[in-house]
Design a protein around this nucleic acid. Structure first.
Length: 295
DNA sequence: AGGGCAACCTGGGGGC
DNA sequence: TGCCCCCAGGTTGCCC
C-alpha cells in the first residue's frame, strides 16, 4: 500500500498518540503479523511489556517506535518495535473495548488506560518486529533497515549521490526508483508520477541517462511525495487511512497512475497501462515514449 | 554481482 | 446468483 507519504502520515499520528506512554498489554491475534520475530509470539509479547515509547521514526516505508525501559535510561535507545505496513497494513488508535476490526492482528494497550494501538492488516504482507537499533552512517536505525537507503525527506538525503547510484545500475529507471537500496520510500504510484513529470518511460536504461535526467527524476519524485504528504496521503479506499481511520484525498491530483484511457494532462493523449513486474505501469505514450530497442 | 521473477495473502470487481 | 479470473500502493528469496 503505502508509500512514503502514507507512512509519514501514520508516523506523525503515532507520534502524537503514543510517545511517553508505557505498554502494559500485548495481544497477538495472528502469528503471521509477527513472523519476522524468530522467537515467536510469546517472546514478542515479553519484549514489549513495560517498554515506554520514546519516539516514532521512519525511513522510506519502514516505521518504528524507539523503546526505553521505564524509568527512562540515559543514552541512545537500544531497542525498538519495527513496523512495515506491507500492502494493506494500518495503525489505528482505538478506545479499549472497541470491537475487533475484521483483520486485527496485534493490539497494544498502555498503562494510562487510554487508546490502544491496533495493527490491522488484511493481506498480512506487513508485520511488527522487535528490533535492535544500530548506527548506520551516524543515524540510529533498526538492524533490518540498515540496508535501506535514506529517503528524499531525510535531512541527510544526498540527491547527487542517489542520482549517481541510479546511473550506475544497469536496469530501467522505474526499477531503479523502486529499489529501496538506491533511494527509499518510492512505490509504484509515485514512481509513475515522477516519470510522467520527468517525461521518461520507465524502461529507459539508467546507465544512459544524463546526470541531469537522473537528478530531475529524483526531484520529481521528491516533489510529488511532498505534495501528497501535504494533502494527507493518497487513498483510493478505506484501506489507506491515518491513525484515526481518516482517508487522504490526493488521488484527485494523480496525473497518470490509474488513469488508463484518460487524457494526459499535458498533451491530451490517452494514458496507457502496461504490464510491469506482475503489476501495472501508467504513462503518456507521447510525453514518455518507449526507448528504442536495445542495441 | 546483480537483475528478474514467483511467492507470500485476502478481498473486491468484472465477465461469463 | 455463482464462479473464476484478474487486480491491488511491497518485499523477500531464489534462480540465472
Amino acid at each position: 500500500m503505502p508509500e512514503l507519504p502514507e507512512v509519514e502520515v501514520v508516523r506523525a499520528g503515532l507520534e502524537r498518540h503514543v510517545v511517553g506512554r508505557t505498554i502494559t498489554s500485548v495481544e497477538v491475534l495472528h502469528p503471521r503479523a509477527v513472523r519476522g520475530h524468530e522467537a515467536g509470539a510469546s517472546d514478542f509479547v515479553g519484549r514489549l511489556l513495560d517498554a515506554t515509547v520514546t519516539a516514532v521514526r521512519r525511513r522510506g516505508k519502514y516505521l518504528w517506535l524507539d523503546l526505553g525501559s521505564s524509568p527512562e535510561p540515559a543514552g541512545a535507545p537500544e531497542e525498538g518495535l519495527l513496523a512495515h505496513l506491507g500492502m494493506s497494513g494500518q495503525m489505528l488508535m482505538r478506545p479499549p473495548g472497541t470491537p475487533n476490526e475484521r483483520h486485527l492482528r496485534v493490539r497494544l494497550g498502555f498503562a494510562d488506560g487510554g487508546p490502544e494501538l491496533r495493527f490491522v492488516d488484511q493481506r498480512t504482507f506487513g508485520g511488527l518486529t522487535p528490533v535492535e537499533l544500530v548506527d548506520v552512517d551516524g543515524t540510529r536505525v533498526p538492524r533490518p533497515v540498515a540496508h535501506i537507503a535514506r529517503d528524499p525527506m531525510d535531512p541527510l538525503f544526498d540527491p547527487v549521490a542517489a542520482a549517481r547510484a541510479i546511473r550506475r545500475r544497469r536496469t530501467g529507471i522505474k526499477r531503479a526508483l523502486l529499489d529501496q537500496t538506491l533511494v527509499s520510500g518510492i512505490g509504484n504510484i509515485y514512481a509513475d508520477e515522477a516519470l510522467w513529470r520527468a517525461r521518461l518511460h520507465g524502461t529507459r536504461p539508467t546507465d544512459r541517462l544524463t546526470a541531469r535526467q537522473a537528478r530531475e527524476t529524483l526531484d520529481a519524485a521528491t516533489a510529488v511525495m511532498a505534495e501528497a504528504l501535504a494533502a494527507g496521503g493518497t487513498s483510493f479506499d478505506a484501506l489507506y487511512v491515518d491513525v484515526n481511520g481518516e482517508s487522504g484525498y490526493f488521488e484527485r491530483a494523480l496525473d497518470v497512475y490509474g488513469r488508463e484511457g484518460e487524457p494526459c494532462r499535458r498533451c491530451g493523449t490517452p494514458v496507457i497501462r502496461e504490464p510491469f513486474m506482475n503489476r501495472s505501469s501508467f504513462s503518456c505514450p507521447r510525453c514518455q515514449p518507449r526507448p528504442r530497442a536495445q542495441r
